[in-house]
Amino acid sequence: MGRSSKDKRDIYYRLAKEEGWRARSAFKLLQLDEEFNLFKGVSRAVDLCAAPGSWSQVLSRKLRGKESSEDVKIVAVDLQAMAPLPGVTQIQGDITKISTAQEIIRHFEGQSADLVVCDGAPDVTGLHDVDEYIQAQLLLAIFRGKDVTLLYSQLKIFFTSVTCAKPRSSRNSSIEAFVVCQNYSPPEGYVPNMSNPLLDHSYDVDFNQLEGPNRIIVPFLACGDLSAFDSDRTYPLQLDSNKEYQYLPPTQPPIRPPYQQACHLRKNNLLATEDSPSVLLDDSLSAMKLDTNKENDRTSRNS
């Protein structure tokens, strides 16, 4: 299978490279903004589970514009390291820790965030982890399952508008969706407390049997222009008859991803060996660096 095969199978992966985005997920946030106007009036934004940084890229370009703005503050948080982005402060930490929330608040000089976005796994994006630094809007990536009503119900307590949206760049074959929460309005006297999570998975097993006002059903909205590319369709490499297709490498390769060592061990048939893990890791890093340098050299010669 050639290296251009993914360009045919995933049009948004290809477009991300052509437009300089770090990942195809950038189009999800762009399409959600087209529908909900998320960035209007935003000067303080938080990107949780940010790596590899495509959503932080979108925030940087949309909020800062072509010129740097001192009034705009963007914080990106992730357990993994991430390549730097202009105008984005990076915090390598756990979003479920109070120390991480305090560090974000310090960066905003005690002010609340105007927008919090999170494209992370649902099991680490409970409301109790992020309401410490929410002011106006919240955007969460979720998987629509039988228990998602619990999340909707709790979000409705804190936001006057809760909508479940699916951008065109999100595959129809995936149960992935995004909850867009607007107009943050917590109950009177509510004090955020991360030591007492709201999401409790020991709730009544018959919860989803409730009907009427006891069950919250939020609107579901498909985002993106109808003329946009279909994320589940395979497209030819030659999209424009006036422009010849040229393969492009990813905009930003991962920085020491957790799977890096495993890939090197598998490639060299070392998974079953008893060599020292530290030695294998050093070998893995050296090999990855060498491969990256070779790829950069090839790109320079072709450009």
Results as ranks from 00 to 15, higher is better:
74 I>C: 06
142 I>F: 13
204 D>K: 10
19 E>C: 03
135 Q>P: 14
119 D>N: 06
126 G>N: 03
138 L>Q: 05
129 D>A: 13
209 Q>F: 12
302 N>H: 13
154 Q>G: 09
123 D>S: 08
109 E>H: 10
31 Q>T: 00
220 F>K: 12
51 A>F: 10
221 L>Y: 09
162 V>Y: 02
262 A>Y: 15
125 T>M: 11
187 P>Q: 12
5 S>G: 10
37 N>G: 08
171 R>T: 06
149 T>Y: 06
69 S>G: 05
163 T>F: 07
85 L>E: 01
98 I>L: 08
101 A>H: 02
45 A>T: 06
287 A>L: 09
240 D>I: 07
56 S>R: 01
244 E>Q: 12
119 D>Y: 02
241 S>A: 12
277 P>H: 08
71 D>T: 06
159 F>R: 01
173 S>A: 12
24 R>K: 10
247 Y>H: 09
36 F>T: 04
279 V>H: 15
89 T>A: 11
157 I>E: 10
100 T>L: 02
223 C>G: 02
219 P>H: 05
58 V>Y: 01
22 R>Q: 14
15 L>T: 03
168 R>L: 00
59 L>Y: 00
133 Y>E: 06
107 H>S: 11
47 D>S: 02
9 R>P: 03
166 K>D: 00
295 E>W: 07
281 L>S: 13
34 E>D: 07
12 Y>D: 00
55 W>D: 00
195 S>R: 12
14 R>A: 00
36 F>N: 03
130 V>K: 01
1 M>A: 12
67 E>C: 08
68 S>A: 13
191 V>G: 09
128 H>A: 09
178 F>C: 03
199 L>R: 12
59 L>W: 00
222 A>P: 07
251 T>L: 10
228 A>Y: 00
201 H>G: 15
128 H>D: 12
20 G>L: 02
3 R>A: 14
185 S>D: 11
29 L>M: 04
252 Q>W: 07
90 Q>I: 09
280 L>S: 05
248 L>M: 07
89 T>V: 15
26 A>K: 04
171 R>A: 11
283 D>F: 13
216 I>A: 11
237 L>H: 10
162 V>N: 02
160 T>P: 08
113 A>D: 05
149 T>C: 13
151 L>M: 09
166 K>C: 02
49 C>L: 13
28 K>V: 01
121 A>N: 15
65 G>E: 14
92 Q>A: 14
287 A>N: 13
248 L>G: 02
186 P>E: 15
137 Q>K: 10
233 R>Q: 01
46 V>N: 03
84 P>Q: 05
101 A>V: 08
18 E>C: 07
21 W>S: 03
253 P>M: 13
178 F>K: 01
31 Q>Y: 00
146 K>W: 14
207 F>G: 02
111 Q>F: 06
265 L>H: 04
284 S>M: 06
30 L>F: 04
46 V>L: 12
72 V>A: 08
237 L>Q: 06
62 K>M: 05
101 A>M: 04
243 K>L: 14
141 A>G: 11
185 S>P: 14
19 E>F: 03
166 K>M: 03
91 I>A: 05
26 A>M: 07
16 A>W: 04
158 F>Y: 04
40 K>M: 14
286 S>P: 09
280 L>Y: 14
296 N>C: 14
6 K>P: 05
48 L>T: 03
84 P>L: 05
47 D>G: 02
199 L>W: 15
38 L>D: 00
121 A>T: 13
291 D>P: 14
45 A>V: 06
49 C>W: 10
297 D>V: 09
